[in-house]
Computed example of a mutant assay.
Amino acid sequence: MQKIERELYKYGDLKEQAREIEEDIREFAAKKVEIVDSMLRAPMMDRVRVQGGQPSDPVYDVVEKLVDVYDAQIAEASARLKEIYTQYERMKERIVLAGLDEYERRYIKRRYVDRISHMAVASEIGYCERQLSRIRASALKKITGKR
């Protein structure tokens, strides 16, 4: 397998990784909102005096720490998502700038992003496998810049 094909398969994986991270972020945010909401509904405890005379609400302190944990998880996931989008856009731009024709673009999308077998793509496009192999080779050459 050529290096460019590995990169194209990775390109297809990036879309799925982004979807998973977006789902994680939604879950973290929902948990954070749920914790804050439950705290707001909970009866306030009388402030407890701790050593040094500072008033403290132990429930509030725990909730505040949990919110901070979820904020950190959301920030970390957002940073990963940004990197994935950057990689995805770089490869997408590379494909666009390669000047692929309609069949080459379709082959790249169906084979590497959608992960459909070479034979299935050939059948879908209406070409024999040999012709599709030529389309594949032409597309890969264009993407790598070797014309």
Rank of each mutant, 00 (worst) to 15 (best):
S78M: 06
T86G: 09
G99F: 04
Y112A: 07
Y70L: 10
S56A: 04
A79M: 13
A29V: 11
V59G: 01
Q87T: 02
R111G: 02
K141H: 08
A120K: 12
R147K: 08
S138N: 12
Q17L: 14
K10R: 09
G99R: 01
K141V: 03
I143M: 04
Y60W: 04
R136H: 08
K141M: 12
D24V: 07
V69I: 02
Q51P: 12
Y85A: 05
K31L: 13
I4T: 11
K65H: 03
D68R: 00
R106W: 01
F28E: 15
I4Q: 06
V67G: 05
M39D: 02
E20R: 12
M1S: 10
R111P: 10
M44P: 12
L100V: 07
R115I: 05
P43F: 12
Y107T: 06
E23K: 11
R90D: 08
E20I: 07
K92F: 05
K82D: 10
E83P: 01
D101H: 03
D61K: 06
E129C: 06
A30P: 14
R134N: 05
V67L: 11
G126Y: 03
Y11W: 01
A77P: 09
E34N: 01
R90G: 09
V50E: 15
I95A: 10
D46W: 00
Q87Y: 02
Q87M: 03
V59A: 01
G12R: 01
V50P: 15
E83F: 09
R80M: 05
L14P: 08
I125Q: 10
R90L: 08
R136N: 14
Q54V: 03
E27Y: 12
Q54K: 04
A79Q: 06
L81H: 05
I25K: 11
K92C: 04
M91H: 01
L81A: 00
E20V: 03
L81M: 04
A79E: 00
E102W: 12
R90I: 10
A79C: 09
E64T: 06
V63Y: 00
S117M: 14
Q51A: 09
Y70I: 00
V69N: 04
Y9A: 07
Y85V: 14
G99D: 00
E27N: 15
K142W: 03
E76D: 11
A18V: 13
I108T: 08
Y127Q: 13
E23P: 14
V69R: 05
D114V: 00
E27I: 15
D13E: 06
T144H: 04
S117T: 06
P58S: 12
E22K: 07
R115F: 11
K141I: 04
Y85F: 09
V113E: 08
E104H: 09
R115E: 06
Q131I: 02
E83D: 05
E16H: 02
Y11K: 02
I143N: 01
T144Q: 14
G99N: 00
S56E: 01
R105L: 12
E83G: 03
I25Q: 04
L140E: 14
V69T: 06
